[in-house]
Design a binder for these strands. Structure first.
Lengths: 240, 240
DNA sequence: AGCTTAATATCGGGG
DNA sequence: CCCCGATGTTAAGCT
């Protein structure tokens, strides 16, 4: 394999070889992937330890360090981007991977199975559809989605009590506060909308209606909405 | 390298070789790490696409699929645990990694640089210190942390208006609602506590005090707390 | 720098 | 299964 290939892997390297490879790769800005048996120590906003086990360690050029186990979306431990990543050999001859910032992460490798260096290029941008921002846009483009006659919309209108997703007036000229959620409506959402209405009425001594827009809501939440005299409009984030 | 080693890596495999290795490794329950140039399609709660780029793909035995770029804690795309992971060859001879559950994730690999199979064992448990649960325990062990004379504590006491972190009585026998946060106090926390007090007074026609426990709070939040006549007790999640 | 809000949030616990 | 709340939440946008 040529020296300047995109990816180079060493299997079962000596600690000192692994450390040198990592140090060089960090300075080059590679993504580094390490398969190892390691324990992990974290000290920062909280503290954590985990004893030895087989894990995958990933070091990114922005200083992110991830330690992944065999389960779940979340890493067991991590260091946020911006950290200074070092590789050392400790007194027992083990490879230490250390990420230092305002917090401290130490990965103590008792056995290194592989070290892979990835001279990657990624210029592509992620495009996501079905966000709450997109739901806002759709309502602003077509106010009838909320209700017939809804007009004079304002987006992210600031009030002393908070920022309202969409503010406007119904066909009778009554102000309407619209709260948009991309997930199923829950009690917090209802509470947030109710609080807005209450504060609005207190401050402006004017009647106002509230509408919650979300993909769906349970029967229980529907009752709560009803009890508070709030409207609900189903809107699927992905319909368009 | 022996056949039953913990880790086996192939560099620049043909698509069909990569697919077969992945299929076998999935059935064995390995952690699979793939370095590749790929595009990604996601369809589920939202939809997303990202064009070709160099990324690290990780497949876990619980059905988690992660696609990591060169920046940040978060994967570019992922599939939650529980998905059915398949590897196929498409019409162009590219390796497709597909995770199917209620959602759909497709990783289209235009070039596969490495495939690493990790027959891992990890029996260790993560121990975390400095959580909110730990702060609760410390208060229950030593009520004086909140204030002198605080007594008859109840943990996670349920009320019609919500679950109170710690409920008890002050030295004068007045009920006290304690809300605990492991992060700096903010307006939401104050609002939550204030709402509890209000509901409590309305329902039980009895005076009640509120104390917010958090590592710190800004001057602004201190003013808000003061305006609502709420107490504040600084408590560092990591002091003990 | 601080604050606010969204996120394909994830994850765990309780009813 | 739904609901609720914590997370070392992370991340983006705005003041």
């Amino acid at each position: 394999m040529s020296v300047d290939a995109k990816v180079s892997t060493v299997e079962s390297p000596e600690s000192i070889v692994a450390a040198n490879k990592i140090i060089n790769a960090v300075s080059r800005g590679d993504i580094i992937t390490i398969h190892a048996s390691c324990s992990v120590l974290y000290e920062g906003r909280a503290e954590s330890t985990i004893a030895e086990g087989d894990r995958v360690v990933m070091i990114k050029p922005d200083g992110t360090v991830l330690v992944h186990g065999d389960e779940g979306y979340q890493p067991i431990n991590w260091q946020a981007s911006g950290s200074d990543v070092k590789a050392e050999i400790d007194g027992d001859g083990n490879l230490l991977i250390i990420g230092v910032d305002s917090e401290y992460l130490e990965v103590n490798c008792y056995a290194v199975y592989t070290v892979t260096l990835f001279d990657n290029t990624d210029k592509a941008e992620l495009h996501v559809r079905g966000t709450e921002a997109e739901m806002h846009e759709r309502i602003l483009d077509d106010p009838q989605l909320v209700e017939s006659g809804f007009h004079d919309l304002e987006h992210e209108k600031k009030f002393p009590f908070g920022r309202v997703d969409v503010f406007g007036y119904d066909s009778d000229g009554v102000p309407v506060i619209v709260e948009v959620k991309r997930r199923s409506a829950n009690r917090d959402h209802v509470h947030q909308l109710y609080t807005y209405l209450k504060e609005y009425k207190e401050r402006y001594s004017e009647d106002v209606r509230g509408v919650l827009v979300a993909p769906d809501c349970t029967d229980f939440i529907a009752e709560v909405l009803n009890a508070y005299d709030l409207g609900f409009v189903p809107l699927d984030p992905l319909d368009s």
